[in-house]
Design a binder for these strands. Structure first.
Lengths: 198, 198
DNA sequence: TGCGTAGGCCAACAAGTGTTGACTCGTTTG
DNA sequence: CAAACGAGTCAACACTTGTTGGCCTACGCA
């Protein structure tokens, strides 16, 4: 899978680098397992097997299962700067960005799956919302008091989409084309963020 | 195999009834555990302890853990007849009904938690959508071809609300008042179901 | 009164879990 | 070259899981 650890072309040293390589292999395997199996069913043994090493190596490098999860799942939504956009485009921009990030990064599925059954996972999900979604809402909301509520509404719609499309896999939701999703959801988010409160 | 072996329809007391009582106790405890812990962490031992009986009784009555889950979690959304409502009220009616059902019935939380980490749970969730949500969308959608997509959109918004409010417990989402939720979400659902496709 | 049947408990099984410690072996360093 | 170090493996621990079978007990019918 990874390879090229061979000591032939090493400017540095063999064993020194190997640890970094296997550490990465462990993290990659862990992300995959957490994303598809959730926290409880993603066993350290299975992750180690995917990474082609002994389970004890996982413990050596990450302490315990919680530490492995903490190290493997770190989310950066890379949300765009909404203040720089035309005010009427932020809904559309959010949906398209959200779809792209989610589809190219299995970490988000992992975080969602784990957050549902694991307390630490839920808190970590809350952290992503608090540290990355709320600030963006702050950029476009005039009334500071309404920011949490409006950001929360955005989260319900976007996470609901991810849940039914990428986790529960409702056939009609999976069948939706990207353009359809954008066309339907953009006005919703636009309203949640910019419309006067009802 | 089980069920009414006695030929006489006895209202008689005694052991005959006790089994029904403990069966109910098991189901109640199971629902609670599945709702709070998800499938894997809801152990048969814990459920049995909650029901004040031996774990083996669970096996005797429900075969295995999957059978117990199947028996414990059966969802009836009792969705209202949307065709009988003024067309402009169906969004609001859906949100209010959904909130009520979810808050008085922990089965829905159980189903969502299990559906995220368990294949059988995911399929059961799909079944609820297919058998109960789709038909209701059929009542109000003019174009039959658009029914699945529109019902899917409704599901994303409602399940996203439930996910962030009742499972992940995002503080701002939990803080939302029932009226606020209705006021914000009703127009969204109304549009998803009745507006011309964008 | 006696007996069968069913509710219920106890103890145990096999499998799988996270986790630990001792051990091997190649590489780096003095 | 010899010592030290660190990557990696092996085998085992202690525990929990779902699941099973044997046993006791009390009720209801004969």
């Amino acid at each position: 899978m990874n390879g090229s650890v061979s000591s032939t072309t090493d400017p540095g040293s063999g064993a020194r680098r190997r640890s970094a390589a296997t550490r990465d292999a462990i993290l990659t395997a862990a992300r995959e397992r957490f994303a598809t199996d959730g926290y409880e069913r993603a066993t350290i043994r299975a992750i180690a097997k995917d990474a082609n090493i002994d389970p004890s190596m996982v413990m050596r490098y990450y302490g315990n299962k919680e530490g492995l999860f903490a190290a493997a799942v770190s989310v950066d939504l890379q949300l765009p700067d909404l203040a720089a956009l035309p005010r009427d485009d932020i809904g559309r921009a959010l949906v398209t960005h959200f779809l792209s990030v989610w589809e190219e990064n299995e970490v988000l599925t992992a975080l969602l799956r784990v957050g549902v059954t694991n307390q630490a996972g839920a808190e970590r999900t809350q952290g992503v919302f608090r540290d990355q979604v709320l600030p963006v809402a702050r950029q476009v909301c005039p009334d500071p008091e309404q920011i949490p509520a409006r950001a929360a509404l955005v989260a319900t719609q976007l996470l609901g989409l991810a849940l039914t499309r990428y986790v529960l896999r409702f056939p009609p939701t999976v069948a939706l084309h990207r353009d359809e999703i954008v066309a339907w959801l953009a006005p919703t988010l636009q309203r949640y963020l910019t419309a006067p409160s009802p």
